[in-house]
């Protein structure tokens, strides 16, 4: 019971924590790449975009509870939050794939 609750609580913030980290990394890559005029800057950004979506998708698709455990309020809220995080990741980071990066 306690372990399941703890996992649900962590899952509740996991998706958006990943989202925040990806945000920082992408914004950082954009700024540093521009400052130092990296070649292949765009591909790096696209790579980071895709890489950030993998854990987000994994969290959003994952089963909320283990075999034999009841679904709880927290576990359901966690699934929703993680799906929202995936959606937010896809939408907010999408511009890195095509918008002009340094001007």
């Amino acid at each position: 019971m306690v372990r399941q609750d703890l996992r649900a609580l962590l899952l509740l913030i996991a998706g958006f924590t990943v989202w925040s980290l990806a945000f920082v990394v992408l914004y950082g890559l954009q700024a540093i790449g521009c400052a130092y005029g990296w070649p292949n800057h765009r591909w790096l950004l696209i790579g980071a975009y895709v890489a950030s979506l993998i854990p987000l998708a994994w969290l959003a698709m994952g089963k909320p509870v283990r075999e034999g455990e009841p679904t709880t309020t927290l576990s359901i809220a966690a699934v929703w939050a993680n799906r929202a995080a995936l959606g937010a990741g896809i939408l907010v980071f999408l511009p890195v794939t095509f918008v002009s990066a340094c001007i």
Binding site: L12, F16, F23, L74, A77, A78, A81, A84, A88, V92
Partner: peptide, 18 residues
């Protein structure tokens, strides 16, 4: 929507930093 609200405020809390 008790659970949806919890998910929404968590989402808001994080999104608002971006």
């Amino acid at each position: 929507g008790y659970r949806a609200i919890i998910a929404a405020i968590v989402a808001m809390g994080f999104l608002s930093f971006g």
